[in-house]
């Protein structure tokens, strides 16, 4: 039951992009086409889950026992950067097909604040490892879902006659606002 609450809570109720404002840059940057949105989503699901797992282990087995909690920000961002680099190298060797699909998005993920944000949130919410991984994976799925829905809308938006000054980013932001409004309907579904 507890896991169900975490999953529904982080995919719908407090969706990471539309209510928590994390990962807005890729949300606006790669949502022009549905296919790239799916690729980016896949890469984020993969890296975010892995990064949260690794940072959780580092937090509870290295930082806390040695009283180095104040190093959290520095250590986490370095771990994430190294991890992304490593995933890129391994993927290139092991599965060239997957690398073809996700490769271009991987370097962008280091500066995706959703990854660092979820890693820190997992520690703040004092989850155990399994809860943390569930939390991370469902947040990443929530991110992908928002991205895919939004790119679908934007593909249609391209065909519309938008007032000149609103073309591009302004209309995309207003659309995202309306989408966020729709997601507010989930508020209060789970605590």
């Amino acid at each position: 039951m507890e896991y169900f609450v975490i999953i529904v809570g982080s995919i719908f109720v407090s969706n990471i992009v539309l209510t928590q404002f994390l990962g807005i840059c890729p949300f606006l940057g790669v949502s022009n086409k549905l296919s790239t949105a799916i690729g980016m989503g896949g890469a984020v699901i993969f890296v975010l889950t892995l990064a949260t797992m690794v940072t959780w282990i580092i937090q509870y087995y290295v930082l806390t026992p040695f009283g180095l909690d104040f190093m959290q920000t520095i250590v986490f961002i370095l771990v994430i950067a190294a991890l992304v680099q490593m995933v890129e190298i391994i993927l290139k060797k092991v599965s060239p097909a997957l690398y073809q699909a996700l490769g271009v998005f991987l370097p962008l993920i280091t500066t995706n604040c959703a990854v660092l944000g979820v890693a820190i949130l997992t520690i703040q919410k004092q989850f155990n490892l399994l809860e943390g991984v569930t939390f991370a994976a469902s947040n990443a799925i929530g991110f992908t879902m928002a991205l895919v829905i939004f790119s679908g809308i934007r593909e249609h938006l391209d065909l519309m006659e938008v007032p000149k000054g609103m073309r591009g980013i302004p209309i995309a932001l207003v659309t995202a606002g309306i989408l966020a409004l729709a997601f507010m309907g989930f508020t209060g579904m789970v605590k």
Partner: peptide, 19 residues
């Protein structure tokens, strides 16, 4: 003040600054 308003206000502000 809630999330949707943030997106909408920023969208209009950017359009204004572009102008």
């Amino acid at each position: 003040i809630l999330a949707p308003g943030g997106f909408i206000v920023l969208g209009y502000l950017i359009a204004l600054i572009n102008k």
